[in-house]
Amino acid sequence: MTSTQSRGWWRHNRWGLIAVVPSLVVAIGFTYSTAYNAYWKHHPREPVAAGEGGWVSYGGARIRLLGLAPAYNVKDYGGKPFGPPGTARIWRATLAFEVSDKDTLAGCDLLLEDTDGRTYSAGPSELRGARVPYPSCTQDSLATPSPRYEVAVYFVLPGTAKGAAVRVQLDTKLPHYARLTAAG
């Protein structure tokens, strides 16, 4: 190929060659963006903080943390005091809900966050045998249906840990989750 022919090839294909660069950027960027968003959106990363009055609007409902403290009066099904393993402590959170539909928050996950940012499941295996309600964001099925109701949720934390906030999360609303802190 002579130098004249070579120059002709570059000139003939110049637009194709120029298009290669943005095509590669778009192809790689789109793949990266898709994978990154898929990873990001499947984890609770963006807390929804409380507004005025401590209410958090989340998932089509309003939620408020009424109380969060160690629980010392938990009983077993025989009515005897129930103790957690070792030096662990039971914590109780009371939540108020306002919903337009009773199933608005069905299937939610409830977690307790301690002052170090560690999280704990509601109603863990460590509470097996304790007479505590099944952890749920929906109203007790035996109660009179109401758009406003309260639920009590129990957690078990190491003796040295201190509860700081309650998280409410729905898989369909990730990466957003409601982060509720008690007044005061």
């Binding site: 560690r118 499941s121 460590e126 934390l157 840990a161």
Partner: peptide
């Protein structure tokens, strides 16, 4: 099926 909690050994 045991869910493990931070600081609570099983």
């Amino acid at each position: 099926s045991r869910e493990l909690q931070p600081g609570l050994p099983v």
